[in-house]
Design a binder for these strands. Structure first.
Lengths: 150, 150
DNA sequence: CACCCAGAGTTCCCTTACGGAACCCCAATA
DNA sequence: TATTGGGGTTCCGTAAGGGAACTCTGGGTG
């Protein structure tokens, strides 16, 4: 498909897409986060082609999102989140909130998340990491940063 | 490419991917959010094929993320965010934070965002919308929800 | 030792989607 | 009447996804 390479754009959104933007990657991340760690387990749960799953796992390991952990004398590996990968899960939590709000319909959300700190089932809320006030699309102005393209 | 249809899975992440998961869609959303609204403007900025841009815009309008606004006597349209689309921008903000943190390298972030409420350039922070404490991958437990598959 | 099994890929073929360039349509303008 | 500009549409070549079959490795079992 000779896809355009997003990784070289001067944009953190495009670069992030280069890591998890390919089809299936966010769902693989979801499953690994949920505790699935083995190839056949992922393949069966997602119904993804084995070829594509291999490609995605290799890419996510190369990018430092997953680490491959041997678990047998034989060449068998489990996939686990790295710190870098765990922070990517924030993305899934925001997707969950949006999907729950706009796409769940009458049936309601398929999955609920219980926040361990307070015990309630809740969603994430985006706040400014400086002042703590809400921070959404219309609350911010973009400025060129140090890594801006020439 | 006979891509698998994510929209029918009982998962808000998969359903959200069905809306903006296709290649280019998040970058189109970024540009429209940044104020670009016309076909040729988007096409030139992204370097996307006109065919694919047409397909993506149609899909995003169908999904209620953008609305088409006529701006001339001729059949000319601008694309603007709906409320549904504006909330999707939260996703871009989280992608920006992750990309800034893990992929920007020595050069630093290509774009900074100034939070209007406090005037500082900052990132988003994910908090529980119930108790206000931080909410990340390891702070939550999934439970089946009302819309869970049978 | 021979055989079978399980997990994790790998290979092959077919179909579909992307990229790029050329082309089209319409209304206003010169 | 010819031109221009915005917004697509069409066509072709190539690469990526889907699916099934095959391979490889190292146990267990009889």
């Amino acid at each position: 498909m000779q896809r355009t390479n997003f990784g070289e754009m001067a944009c953190s959104i495009a670069r992030t897409l280069d890591v998890i933007g390919e089809p299936w990657s966010p769902l693989i991340l979801r499953d690994v986060w949920a505790g699935m760690s083995r190839f056949d387990q992922l393949q069966a749960d997602l119904g993804i082609s084995r070829k594509v799953l291999t490609e995605r796992l290799n890419h996510l390991v190369d990018q430092g999102v997953f680490e491959r952990r041997p678990y047998d004398n034989r060449p068998r590996y489990e996939y686990h989140l790295t710190a870098k990968g765990a922070e990517l899960v924030d993305l899934l939590m925001v997707m969950t909130r949006w999907g729950d709000r706009w796409l769940a319909g009458e049936a309601g959300p398929p999955v609920l998340y219980r926040h361990q700190a307070c015990g309630e089932t809740s969603h994430v809320d985006l706040r400014c990491d400086h002042c703590g006030e809400p921070m959404h699309a219309s609350d911010i102005d973009p400025l060129p940063g140090p890594g801006a393209a020439v």
